[in-house]
Nucleic acid binder design. Structure first.
Length: 489
RNA sequence: CGGGGUAUGGCCCAGUCCGGUUAAGGCGCCUGCUUUGGGAGCAGGAGACCGUAAGUUCGAAUCUUACUACCCCGACCA
């Protein structure tokens, strides 16, 4: 029982840490805040990448790659952008080491860089410096580019996947002729994220805009998707920004319009990161380990043979071969775990911990009866099925599981979403966790006071909220609509 | 950056107060036999310059000093 997890009830964050380590998703490295993503964790990221990449291509985007290093001077060009990122930038000052008299390796002071380099915390500056050269006329627009990359933000309080010094993400950067076109793009991409979160990750999300306090450094408007975790805290799962002409002006990116007038281009940027793996874990998993939605699971079905000797294993393997063939023909990813170094019980526990959606077990009894034992990870239910039409049966089961995982998360969110109108109820609800819809007078000052008193922030000003007036929960001033408050990761 | 704590095989850790020569135990690992429908049992085995450096001492995992790394709380951040 060495691999058992801390229960969620006992200590939620310990449960999360245990799960990440024991499900073999990632581990800490020699450098604080930098993680090693292990094969099982990386395989999940690859599934995310592949689904998102397809969606980006379908919406007209192309991939490209921009450099890791950014000249320090670029950062000075957009004032609020610097301000937002300055405190978490890693800086390269030298380009060489040497061995000193004592035989120690030291930085070679003579190898100082003319201009220091910033390791990108995000790529707006280098990209806009490049776009200036690419854009002459309205005929060069729009530019619709995405890049898959790593970025570095020097975090004081790292947590595996949720907040690490270096993380993997994608960042889209687009340039447009008109303001409306750029706004449409930013809205389209937050829509893509919401679609991906709900239909692939099985995580219901609120879609909307950020309050000014929570806005991206350098953006005019930040759109986001916000998810609720099982401990009642919110997690920002993706953001899309309408950048206005801020970066175009900072980097002098102009084009000649249809009316032969020099104009600044309109911009967007949008991104999701490996943080989504953290969201996936905290949205669905249980005290037995990871629970993966079939559409994002690197392995959808694992088959465990139950045998006493080599002859039995050989007979079972024959049958399994047929089943594997049928499943693969239906594009279902299968793993046959025929290791003879571990007992079935051990394998059951291990694959549960790793979140594989469906487990098939086949033993001598099944061979005789033409059956197979089917266990589903989301409900932990077991059933014995006839092998006939196993392909269709599993295919349907995977669809059911995907749906059930989403519905479960949706019910959880609905049960932890509240409308409140009094300050007492407001603080009380926030204390217990969940999304709290309340009226807000629209000022950053009020939001900051609320944050100071409750540690909660406005997570999102939802698109689909009724624009019904009310009174601010704190100041009693006029409010145009309810906004969503929560404590957040 | 402020306060507190920890550092002993791959992992979890006992031993440190009160110094004494094979550094204990569990997990994991290796070999063999028996097992295999929910984390196997027994037997044997390998694996540690006790975070680094200096000092005290006949003798240091244990005492002293400095350094380094990591963890927790705060500040900062999303």
């Amino acid at each position: 029982m060495a691999k058992q997890l801390t229960s969620r009830k006992e200590n939620y964050s310990q449960w999360y840490n245990d799960l990440v380590i024991k499900a073999d998703l990632a581990e800490n490295s020699a450098v604080r805040g930098s993680m090693v993503i292990k094969p099982h964790g990386y395989a999940i990221w690859e599934k995310m990448q592949s689904a998102l990449d397809t969606m980006f291509k379908e919406t007209g985007h192309q991939n490209a790659y921009f450099p890791l290093f950014i000249p320090k001077s670029f950062f000075a060009k957009e004032a609020s952008h610097v301000e937002g990122f300055a405190k978490e930038c890693a800086v390269v000052t030298h380009y060489r080491l040497k061995i000193d008299e004592d035989g120690k390796i030291i930085v070679d002071e003579d190898a100082k860089l003319e201009e220091e380099l910033i390791v990108r915390p995000t790529s707006e500056t280098i990209i806009w410096d490049t776009y200036r050269k690419w854009v002459q006329s309205y005929r060069d627009l729009p530019i619709l580019i995405n890049q898959w990359a790593n970025v570095v933000r020097w975090e004081m309080r790292p947590r595996l996947f949720l907040r690490t010094a270096e993380f993997l993400w994608q960042e889209g950067h687009t340039a447009h002729e008109t303001k409306n076109e750029a706004i449409e793009e930013a809205e389209r991409m937050v829509g893509v994220y919401a679609d991906f979160a709900e239909n692939w990750l099985g995580i219901p999300v609120l879609k909307g805009v950020k309050s000014p306090n929570e806005r991206f450094a350098g953006a005019v408007e930040t759109y986001c998707i916000e998810a609720l975790m099982q401990d009642g805290k919110a997690l920002q799962a993706g953001t899309s920004h309408f950048l206005g002409q801020n970066f175009a002006k900072a980097f002098d990116v102009k084009f000649v319009s249809r009316e032969n007038i020099q104009e600044f281009v309109w911009a967007t940027s949008w991104g999701v990161s490996t943080r989504l793996i953290g969201a996936l874990i905290m949205a669905h998993s249980d005290d037995n380990g990871l629970v993966l939605p079939p559409k994002i699971a690197p392995i959808q079905v694992v088959i465990v043979p139950i045998f006493k000797d080599k002859e039995q294993l050989a007979a079972i393997s024959e049958k399994v071969k047929e089943i594997v063939k049928v499943l693969k023909a239906k594009n279902i990813s299968v793993k046959y775990d025929d290791r003879d170094t571990h007992k079935p019980g051990f394998k059951f526990a291990e694959w549960e911990l790793k979140g594989i959606p469906v487990r098939l077990a086949i033993g001598p009894r099944d061979l005789e009866n033409g059956t197979v034992e089917v266990a589903r990870r989301d409900t932990l239910e077991k059933d014995t099925l006839q092998v006939t039409n196993i392909g269709e049966k599993i295919e349907n089961l995977l669809i059911q599981i995907q749906d059930n995982i989403f519905q479960k998360a949706l019910s959880y969110r609905d049960e932890h979403t509240y409308n409140v109108d009094t300050w007492d109820e407001f603080t009380n609800r926030l204390e217990q966790g969940g999304f709290v819809y309340a009226h807000w007078d629209g000022t950053p000052e009020t939001e900051l006071i609320i944050k100071g008193k409750t540690k909660a922030t406005i997570r999102v000003i939802p698109f689909d909220e009724m624009h019904k007036e009310g009174k601010c929960i704190l100041t009693g001033k006029l409010s145009k609509q309810r906004v969503v408050f929560a404590k957040a990761y």
